[in-house]
Write a protein that binds this DNA or RNA. Structure first.
Lengths: 196, 196
DNA sequence: GTCTATAATACGATAGAC
DNA sequence: GTCTATCGTATTATAGAC
């Protein structure tokens, strides 16, 4: 009989986070979380009354992680071009997972968007957080009037690349399109607005 | 007691096609197909031994529809620019469904890509069919060496736009980004290769 | 080919001991 | 807080009459 473990809540979230990403929300059963976290079934229900509540906690954990990441980038890089490049290179950071499970933000929103509008609304915050940060960068780059539009286009580019590289299981495509996105940022920075 | 209906097989496929799109494959139960098609449970299993077999038939139906569409475009439009514009305007044709259910090709590949590699491989053909046709168009446009790369980029752009417009439930974003894609095609046609 | 009834299992959630 | 045992339901799939 295992002793009480106050870190179980965190372990449940971390396991669910990984499994929801790798297998999808609906495709992940409570049994999977039990087996992979080592936390007993009933104990999970003590921490999270429903599966939706667990997903909500996972989304909040991802949201916190993203905000921490963006704060770190804000401190580490001074120019908007550096920051936008850093964002694009997220595709490189996750080159070992994106072609096999897709983007955790995009695939979750796609899944929930079909039949779970309430949960999708929460998951949407993952995208809008990036959108707000990207908007700041494009505004600072000199595109104040079109900053949000460019931010959403930047998000869409990343999502499209992630989706195709996932469907094709193609890491080379991922890297090539990442370079295309970097060049797109550079053209915007150079003010070649025929490309905007 | 209803009389035998030789068109039941087609009715099952059409209903499953719609529900798989609107609700997702795993989220659609056989009961849903029974209720929405009017075909009895056991009869569906007569036509399709498993749910996977039904999905395979749905994918083949979608594939046939796409090939018919591309053949029609080939006959209707003479220049590659016209044809590429016609492809991009698919976003406009489905402006009433894309923001609410996403792209039927992308969302299916995303869902199956997580846990159903065998089925995803079949669904991938939906994308490669478009890819092949797009490659032909970009080659004819004068980008023989980079035609496939541009084709995949075109697919990715469309997928990214569909995904974001779905997550945001935003039809205006869909239309705006469609215009961006049309302009992208025009720049390529004009040979402004700094945008390639 | 079509239908109803039902099997077999997997799932989310609960009860209650410790 | 943690655990085991179990409930009620929904799911895919089958059996067998017509």
């Amino acid at each position: 009989m295992p002793a009480p473990n106050p870190q179980n809540r965190q372990k449940i979230i971390a396991t669910a986070d990984r499994l929801f990403y790798q297998s999808g929300y609906h495709q992940t059963a409570f049994s999977d979380i039990v087996n992979n976290s080592g936390v007993a079934r009933g104990n999970i229900y003590y921490h999270f009354k429903t599966k939706q509540a667990l997903l909500t906690a996972v989304i909040e954990a991802r949201l916190t992680r993203i905000k921490t990441l963006l704060d770190d980038w804000n401190g580490r890089y001074r120019t908007p071009v550096q920051r936008l490049h850093r964002f694009v290179n997220t595709l490189h950071d996750h080159a070992n997972s994106l072609p096999y499970y897709g983007c955790p933000l995009g695939s979750l929103n796609t899944e929930l968007g079909k039949t779970q509008p309430a949960l999708q609304k929460k998951a949407k915050a993952l995208l809008t957080t990036y959108e707000g940060w990207l908007t700041d960068q494009f505004a600072e780059l000199g595109y104040a009037g079109k900053a949000q539009e460019l931010a959403l286009r930047c998000l869409a580019l990343g999502q499209g690349i992630s989706l195709i590289s996932h469907a094709y299981r193609d890491v080379e495509l991922l890297q090539r399109e990442r370079l295309y996105m970097l060049a797109w940022i550079d053209r915007l920075a150079a003010g070649k607005d025929e490309c905007i």
